[in-house]
């Protein structure tokens, strides 16, 4: 009886500790969101989406930064995801057990957790220094390098989830591996691969360090890919550290915009994944 009471007490203590830990995490998160909302909502207005970043003391918006972020994120995904998806396909379908795959997988894991500022420095050295100036292209390249490991990993994982029988059935009909991959495996893993792309977009759309070294910033409207381009993370970095109240307000508003965007992307990714699993579940 005594032993049983002790076990119950231990269980209660463990449960309490877990709850405290969970609450700590949640309270921090809620505090961050609350701060962001209370500061960010104050600065929310249509001007954000119609006007350029202003000089101190003037009214303005974030249009050029939003545009720049969208363009560089899109370019980054367009450059990075085909490489990631194809490399993931190689690992899952062609070189499953080769030594080369083991090496690629290891390097990819390193890249996945590499500090993004190092990626920024790398592109700075390779592109910016040679071109002689900051540019949107360099920014997009840095983001592409960050997108590769995310898409590679999810593509490989999702292709590995496709039942072997499906691949064998396609081969048994006389399909060559490339045909099987394109016509059977990609459609079977489609939702998973799209989820990976969304997660990659979420990851790179909030990156600051790589853009600081590559695209830098631009106070004006610019669509030149060969010139410095404004973007939300760097504008936030610059404006938040400034002594001007209206700049700080814009920084909060920008931070809210990025957070909401990433939240929406992550939630869509989860919803898609859940739908995928439901589909798999009923398919068996």
């Amino acid at each position: 009886m005594k032993r049983r009471a002790l076990r119950k007490a231990k269980n209660a203590a463990f449960l309490a500790l877990s709850l405290i830990a969970t609450m700590t995490g949640l309270v921090c998160l809620a505090a961050i969101l609350w701060t962001l909302l209370s500061h960010g909502l104050a600065g929310m207005s249509w001007h954000l989406f119609t006007q350029m970043t202003p000089p101190p003391g003037n009214q303005g918006g974030l249009l050029n930064a939003i545009y720049g972020s969208a363009v560089m994120t899109l370019l980054g995904i367009l450059i990075g995801s085909p490489i990631g998806v194809l490399a993931g396909t190689y690992l899952a379908e062609y070189g499953r057990k080769s030594r080369l795959s083991a090496v690629i997988r290891f390097i990819n894991d390193v890249l996945l957790s590499a500090p993004s500022i190092i990626i920024g420095l790398f592109v700075y050295e390779i592109v910016v220094v040679r071109m002689g100036h900051f540019s949107a292209v360099a920014g997009a390249l840095a983001l592409a390098i960050l997108a590769i490991p995310v898409t590679l990993r999810t593509t490989e994982d999702m292709l590995n989830l496709v039942p072997v029988g499906m691949k064998d059935s396609s081969a048994a009909l006389g399909a060559y591996p490339w045909r099987t991959t394109i016509s059977v495996l990609y459609p079977a893993a489609r939702s998973g691969i799209v989820t990976g792309l969304l997660l990659a977009i979420a990851r790179i759309s909030g990156e600051t360090a790589p853009l600081l070294f590559t695209a830098l910033n631009n106070q004006f409207w610019s669509t030149h890919l060969n010139a410095p381009m404004a973007n939300l993370p760097v504008v936030i970095f610059q404006f938040a550290l400034s002594p001007y109240k209206d700049w700080q307000d814009l920084a909060w508003a920008g931070a809210l915009i990025i957070t909401v965007t990433i939240l929406v992307l992550s939630i869509s990714a989860r919803v898609i994944l859940a739908l995928l699993q439901a589909e798999r579940g009923s398919g068996r």
Binding site: P163, G165, M166, S169, S170, A172, V184, P187
Partner: peptide, 8 residues
Amino acid sequence: FQKPTPFP
């Protein structure tokens, strides 16, 4: 095959 393998 043993398990039905309809393509997606």
